[in-house]
């Protein structure tokens, strides 16, 4: 009799433990599934350099530069060549070399901060590097100074 009660209690405990594990598991899975995108403004940059340096790197050895810069948060400093808004996308182009410039595609929150900027000004921007087409591309850029 006593034996059976102990057995039952053990079974209950095991079921309870499994239930908790399942709930925790589901919660973790849900959290992972809904993991937010990286917030560039609140994350410190992995690499900090001049616009000319990054374009030099990409134009001399693109594969190597891809390994070094792709998906990294990069703070880049350079002279503004142009500020353009096309199809709701605002691009600040930083002076690079003969091969190309650094194109900084601004984040939605940063778009409203461009009124004070002008061509020729030196500026630092922080964004995620996605690669090199005619120019080096940085997305989700925020202005750091």
């Amino acid at each position: 009799m006593e034996h059976q009660i102990i057995k039952k209690m053990k079974a209950k405990k095991i079921i309870f433990a499994i239930l908790i594990l399942a709930i925790v598991g589901a919660f973790v899975a849900y959290k992972m599934y809904n993991k937010p995108h990286i917030n560039v403004a609140e994350t410190s940059s992995d690499i900090s350099l001049q616009a000319k340096t990054i374009i030099d790197n990409f134009s001399s050895d693109e594969t190597k530069a891809n390994e070094k810069y792709l998906d990294k948060i990069i703070k880049v400093t350079g002279e503004i060549v142009s500020i353009k808004t096309e199809n709701e996308t605002t691009i600040i182009s930083l002076n690079g070399n003969d091969f190309g410039n650094v194109l900084c595609y601004l984040s939605d929150e940063t778009k409203n901060e461009i009124s004070s900027l002008k061509e020729g000004q030196i500026i630092s921007l922080k964004g995620i590097c996605t690669g090199f087409l005619m120019d080096v591309v940085l997305v989700k850029c925020v202005i750091t100074n």
Binding site: M32, Y33, N34, K35, P36, H37, I38, L70, D71, I128, T130, G131, L133, V137, V139
Partner: peptide
């Protein structure tokens, strides 16, 4: 046309 694959933005970071 040239497209950078890393430039695709998904709604969910995990999907990306």
């Amino acid at each position: 046309i040239s497209i950078l694959m890393k430039s695709f933005h998904f709604e969910k970071a995990l999907m990306q």
